[in-house]
Write a protein that binds this DNA or RNA. Structure first.
Lengths: 146, 146
DNA sequence: TTCAAAAAAGATATTCATGTCTTTTTTAGT
DNA sequence: ACTAAAAAAGACATGAATATCTTTTTTGAA
């Protein structure tokens, strides 16, 4: 409920790169999957999607890996949700009723509208950079072990 | 996201019974599945669960069907969520981190806490009876066609 | 130019929610 | 007792999210 595992992997992945890449070398998927305790190839697919969306950059070959793009830190969480979960959930009735809308509401329409709008607002205003706390020595732990 | 289809079926099912059963006969699964445009046997399983939880009553055999229990209208939506989706989602970290809690928060901990608590509060206070609007001649429509 | 390292891509497997079909149990009326 | 109607139960099918395994492409360095 709320969000998929893929979203969690995406966020932890990009935060990992944002935290460690500035220290030097590019980040390898092997290392990430290890440290984040996440399925390697599944993570790789999600990372690839983020690269396609310019949320990250990547280079192949020796000394390659993932690194920040010019917009990584400004990327809103909602962009990650779009990639991993899609936006449909925010527009579709919780009772799956196609005709449901504010003129013709299902019994839960306005309650769900409020909850979803709250989430939308939060995820629209929060960026990757907002979540990144380099000053906190425990930050890496807070995204690591499942 | 947010809630499963099963939850939607459960809510529409119980509202359907609450709306039509007082008018006379018990409600047959066949009729419900038809009017709600929902998979018959899948709905049957969910109705059975609600009966097991005393949210509804049922009688087998000729002239049987589903009817209200003494507590149907007082049942909170959260009870339906428990049955269909489970409560785990409200207690588990959005990033699937087992160690995440308010002392040791993941980067999204407090944002998600707020959103989930909002939803919990709403679903804890709202009952089936609260959603049932018998005065509204279009109520049946608002839970009918998918 | 060849080699090895790395991401990208593709193929297959597993799990879980959802959906369908069949059989069993219960029960009211004859 | 018998029959038919209805829910309950069980077996099987499908689809989507998640996970694993293999092959291809790219590229830096010797």
């Amino acid at each position: 409920m709320f969000l998929s595992k893929s979203f969690g992997y995406a966020l932890r992945g990009v935060l990992y790169v944002a935290l460690l890449e500035p220290k030097g070398n590019k980040i390898k998927i092997e290392q990430m999957a290890d440290k984040l305790a996440v399925p390697r190839h599944f993570l790789a697919k999600i990372m690839k999607k983020m690269v396609q969306e310019d949320i990250l950059t990547s280079t192949k070959g020796p000394y390659g890996g993932f690194s920040l793009s010019p917009v990584t830190l400004q990327t809103k969480l909602l962009h990650l949700v779009k990639i991993t979960d899609g936006m449909e959930q925010f527009n579709t009735c919780v009772l799956s009723l196609r005709k449901c809308n504010s003129k013709n509401p299902c019994p839960l329409h306005f309650q769900m509208l409020q909850i979803r709008d709250g989430m939308l607002a939060e995820f629209s205003k929060t960026s990757i950079g907002d979540l990144l706390d380099k000053k906190n020595p425990d930050f890496i732990k807070s995204i690591s072990v499942i």
